[in-house]
Simulated assay, not measured.
Amino acid sequence: MTKTLTRTELYELIWTHPRSTLAKELGISDVAKRRIEIAREREAAEREREAKRLEEIAMHRQKVREHIVNLGKQRRAALDIREMVGVLSTHPELGPEGNPQFDDWVRLALDVADELDPMKRPLELLITGAGTAPER
């Protein structure tokens, strides 16, 4: 005859009796016990794999966020260089005829600004800088 247990009764039995004794009292065979243990081990392994996958996704997202922030900083640095060149090129001491050394410096500064500016780079380079997406 099978006895039906309430949730509270089952909880009390589980926490007050050893598993091996309790299994015998409830009529659970050793084979059934082992199957339950295997199922629990599989569930634990699956939870661990899922946690690892979620952690990889979170790490990738963090890396992408950092890359976006760095691109913003590079863009601002490029704009700062262009602004500085603009201000210096209107300096009264340069005179209307210009200065060849200053012109060389301006070209160099604008080249550096273009290298820094993510808006001037090919899209493929910007994407590969963020890394590849983790597998799902």
Rank of each mutant, 00 (worst) to 15 (best):
T4K: 02
T4V: 08
L5R: 09
T8D: 09
E9C: 07
E9G: 08
L10N: 06
L13H: 08
L13F: 09
H17L: 02
P18K: 13
P18L: 02
R19W: 11
R19P: 03
L22W: 01
A23P: 05
A23I: 02
K24A: 13
E25Q: 15
L26V: 07
S29L: 11
V31I: 04
V31M: 04
A32V: 01
R35G: 13
E37V: 06
I38L: 10
A39I: 03
R40C: 10
E41A: 11
A44C: 01
A45T: 09
E50V: 13
A51V: 06
A51M: 12
R53F: 09
E55N: 11
M59I: 10
H60W: 15
V64H: 06
E66T: 10
E66P: 00
H67L: 08
H67P: 00
H67W: 11
I68V: 15
N70H: 14
L71Q: 15
G72V: 04
Q74F: 05
Q74C: 15
R75M: 10
A78Y: 07
E83I: 08
E83A: 14
V85T: 08
V85W: 06
V85L: 08
G86Q: 10
V87D: 04
L88T: 01
T90K: 14
T90F: 02
H91A: 14
P96L: 14
E97M: 05
G98D: 07
G98W: 06
G98Y: 09
G98I: 08
N99L: 06
Q101R: 03
F102C: 00
F102R: 00
V106P: 00
V106A: 00
R107D: 10
A109L: 12
D111K: 11
A113M: 02
A113C: 09
D114F: 04
D114I: 05
L116H: 07
M119P: 00
K120R: 04
R121P: 03
R121F: 03
R121W: 01
P122E: 14
L123F: 08
L123P: 03
L126N: 15
I127F: 05
A130F: 01
A130E: 12
A133T: 13
P134D: 07
P134Q: 12
